[in-house]
């Protein structure tokens, strides 16, 4: 039963990971840019939720719309103003660009908030539900529910709205999209904004579960990479699936082996998948 509890906890955390990674996957799938500043954006969102909590007294869950919108706008502006010029440039130049952006985000957070860890005090932090022998943390359940909702909303956007469909067309065939008169630049900016918005929501939800400090950004970037490659770079269900897989693997290895070993398991899983199925578990060949 202990195992079940651990697995379920990992699963719920993994859903939030999945939402974060979804952002990376969407950006890569459409804009073909690997967002090396992903973890930094995540941490930025977490601080945004902290601020909303400290300044407006908002629960991180209620801060989701605000932070998500802010990150959308930031992502949109970043793509439009800066990254778009580097789309056709070699990999290493894109890498350097996003590294510079990442460095500046972390540095700004350091200047604004200092290096110490922060969190939010929640009245329900230690509440839990008992279902049979299973014990569910309320925060984890809420976070996971939020993540699934977020992913569903994004998927709905891509399926049912005009812009969403255009973005999909653009991802399939950029040249064709241009030929039929789609404004590719704007669509890319919207996509980057949406990717950032995923991170915005995920950041708020994550704050329910963990503390935040500027230097954990790189860990989140790596985590997002692992997840999307596991699931298949560019695949939306793959990102969620990969997130849950990593969440469960982290929880189990943290419990069975040693907490410090948990990311080794994730990396091991990643290496295995890349070699056996390079397109990821749910990616298209």
């Amino acid at each position: 039963m202990l195992y079940l509890n651990i697995i379920v906890a990992g699963l719920l955390t993994g859903a939030v990971y999945g939402l974060m990674a979804l952002g990376l996957s969407v950006i890569f799938g459409v804009v073909r840019i690997v967002n090396f500043a992903h973890g930094e954006m995540m941490v930025l969102a977490m601080y945004g939720a902290c601020l909303a909590n400290a300044g407006l007294g908002l629960d991180p869950l209620l801060a989701v719309p605000l932070v998500t919108l802010t990150l959308f706008l930031l992502g949109y502006a970043l793509q439009r103003g800066l990254i778009n010029r580097y789309i056709a440039r070699p990999d290493h130049e894109q890498f350097l660009l996003l590294l510079a952006v990442a460095t500046m985000i972390t540095a700004s957070l350091l200047m604004g908030f200092g290096p110490d860890a922060r969190n939010v005090q929640l009245g329900y932090a230690y509440d839990s539900y008992q279902i049979g022998a299973m014990l569910l943390d309320k925060v984890r359940l809420l976070a996971a529910a939020g993540a699934v909702l977020g992913a569903a909303a994004l998927s709905g956007f891509f399926r049912f709205t005009r812009t969403g469909k255009s973005i999909r067309a653009c991802a399939d065939n950029q040249f064709g999209a241009q030929v039929v008169g789609l404004d590719v630049k704007r669509l890319y900016a919207v996509t980057f904004g949406l990717g950032a918005a995923c991170v915005g929501a995920a950041g708020c939800l994550m704050l329910l579960l963990v503390d935040v400090q500027p230097y954990i950004a790189t860990d989140y970037t790596l985590l997002a990479f692992i997840i999307v490659i596991l699931g298949g770079l560019g695949s939306m269900p793959g990102a969620l699936f990969g997130g849950i897989l990593v969440g469960v693997s982290e929880a189990l290895s943290g419990f069975l082996v040693e907490p410090s070993f948990k990311s080794a398991f994730s990396f091991g899983l990643l290496i295995l998948v890349l070699l056996v199925r390079p397109q990821g578990l749910l990616g298209r060949a």
């Binding site: 490659i229 080794a264 290496i271």
Partner: peptide
């Protein structure tokens, strides 16, 4: 051998380095 190239190769090199780092931690 498994045709991992480009970005995937880059991320794989990170994975091996990080994996080794954690191994050396232990």
């Amino acid at each position: 051998r498994f045709r991992v190239g480009g970005v995937y190769f880059a991320l794989l090199t990170i994975a091996f380095a990080e994996f080794t780092r954690i191994l050396f931690d232990h």
